[in-house]
């Protein structure tokens, strides 16, 4: 019992335990929210809000609406939960960028990832996992496209980053 508790707090959990826990929480999110867990549609609202602040977008999303959006707290929760998980095991530290090439790859990768997720209506969570979990054909097609994209990305990674 003590050993189980230690692994639960300190980690790492076996991958299949993670999958079961995430699956259970994913279903709970659907029950609470009446719609599935997603990440990027909330990021999009914040991006539009930020763009308006910088004078790049005409429409205005009031910040009070964003602060009362469920998606905001799910996303914030993921960040805080990971922080807590690292702290609980005494494994938190600030991990600075060690090589400049990873800064470029992060910025370019983020740009591609954000654009792709929004035109396809979802990221790995909202589009792929919960698209498939919703028994939508789009989810399966998206998964196939993501796999092919990953293959191209892997070639780029081997060429420029290794």
């Amino acid at each position: 019992m003590k050993k189980i508790w230690r692994t639960a707090v300190h980690g790492p959990w076996p991958y299949w335990v993670g999958a079961m826990v995430l699956g259970g929480l994913n279903i709970l999110v659907l029950l609470v929210r009446k719609r599935p867990w997603g990440v990027t549609s909330n990021l999009q609202d914040w991006a539009v809000w930020l763009a308006h602040l910088l004078g790049l977008a005409s429409e205005r999303i009031p910040v009070s609406q964003l602060l009362l959006a469920e998606g905001t707290y799910l996303n914030l929760g993921v960040v805080l939960g990971a922080l807590w998980a690292a702290l609980a095991a005494s494994q938190w530290r600030f991990r600075p960028l060690r090589q400049r090439k990873f800064g470029f790859s992060a910025l370019i990768g983020g740009l591609f990832l954000g654009y792709g997720a929004r035109i396809a209506y979802g990221c790995n969570v909202g589009g792929l996992l919960n698209g498939i979990a919703s028994s939508s054909l789009t989810g399966w097609v998206f998964a196939l496209a993501v796999f092919l994209g990953t293959w191209i990305g892997a070639k780029i990674l081997l060429k420029f980053l290794v």
Binding site: A120, V141, L148, T150, I156
Partner: peptide, 19 residues
Amino acid sequence: TIVGGLLFGIGMVLAGGCA
């Protein structure tokens, strides 16, 4: 869906994480 998935797949490998 196809183009978005391809771009998303490339992006997440380079960014070191999906959303």
